[in-house]
Amino acid sequence: MNNERSTQIRLARRPVGWPVHEDFETVTVDYDAPAAGEVRVRNEFVSVDPYMRGRMNDVRSYVPPYQLGDVIAGAAVGRVVASAADALPVGTAVLHQHGWTDVIQADAAKFRAIEEVPGLPLSLRLHMLGMTGLTAYVGLTTIAGMRAGDTVFISGAAGAVGTAAGQIAKLLGAGRVIGSAGSPEKVALLTDKYGYDAAFNYKEGAVRKQLANAAPDGVDVFFDNVGGDHLEAALASMNDGGRLALCGAITAYNTTERPVGPTNLANMITRSLSMQGFTIGSHWDKLPEFTEQMSGWFGAGKIAYDETIVDGIDNSVDAFLAMMRGANTGKMLVRIGE
């Protein structure tokens, strides 16, 4: 295989508030035959994730911002279709961070070969068997120090990380797991499919009151994907010695005004609480432990998952905007056709 055309989605300008289509541009790139040490990969699935919104801003964060004209980098999984690198022959399934593109050609060192699990789609490497699941596992174990019998509250529970975190908490022995979601259908899914003991629709009333009703004996661990009123509600319900793992704050990602913080942070003192933010990039050492655990749970049929799939690399922006507005159940993915 010699020449091939790649379609790529790049950052055209920095969004102000909610991103719009004009903040992105679609370009095509023609690849010659791979040079020595290079491979060409045709993606099968591309990930869209909340953290990408932060990288569109030119501000200090845990990862450098996208530069104007950059491809929207992020996780993708595909297969080698042309190779000039012995370590990655044609047909190898690979995981990489080249993001929103249908075809990518680069040095073989930028790709990681992955084992294909019979009966499971490659897309799982972008969520339950990948960074999403690892994030949930680390947040509960390393950051929050979850113990058997704990009452655990997870915000944004019907999203990719939330559906993983709820199941992992139950499998690790949580006494009660509570989740918040944004529709009656998602609330029902949490209890019917994902093993949550209780769930509520945050759009139907004050989060603080709904959480207090769902957790009359208080909360020991809070896994936060949302921030804002959810964090304030958790602080009001935390038991003495409770632990809060801050994974995301999606309510603030697109605001153009200074977000309002919790008014009850004094509870951190009076209840001897521990609150820690984290990003998964500092915890890759936990990957082997997580992979062994999650593979065992999958093998035993103990893990459920949902995927919300949008077809076509040209629809990546639509998928991203829909995910940011909560239109997904489980992991939002872009599927790349032939």
Rank of each mutant, 00 (worst) to 15 (best):
M1G: 13
N2A: 11
N3S: 15
T7Y: 13
Q8A: 04
L11Q: 06
R14I: 01
P15F: 03
E22P: 06
E25P: 12
D30T: 11
A35E: 15
R40Y: 08
S83A: 05
A87T: 05
A87L: 06
P89W: 11
A93K: 10
W100R: 14
D107Q: 11
A109M: 07
A113Q: 15
E115M: 13
L120Q: 10
H127Y: 14
T132Y: 05
L134A: 05
M146C: 11
V152H: 13
A157D: 10
I168D: 13
L171A: 11
A174G: 06
P184L: 09
E185Y: 07
V187C: 13
D192A: 14
D197P: 11
K203M: 01
K203R: 15
R208V: 14
Q210N: 08
P216M: 07
D217Q: 10
D217K: 14
F222V: 05
A236V: 02
G242C: 04
G242T: 11
C247E: 14
A249Y: 03
A252L: 06
T256K: 05
L265H: 10
N267Q: 15
S274L: 04
F278Q: 00
I280C: 07
I280D: 03
P288R: 06
E292G: 12
S295T: 15
F298S: 06
G299D: 12
G299E: 12
E307P: 06
D311A: 03
D318K: 12
A319S: 09
A322F: 03
I336V: 14
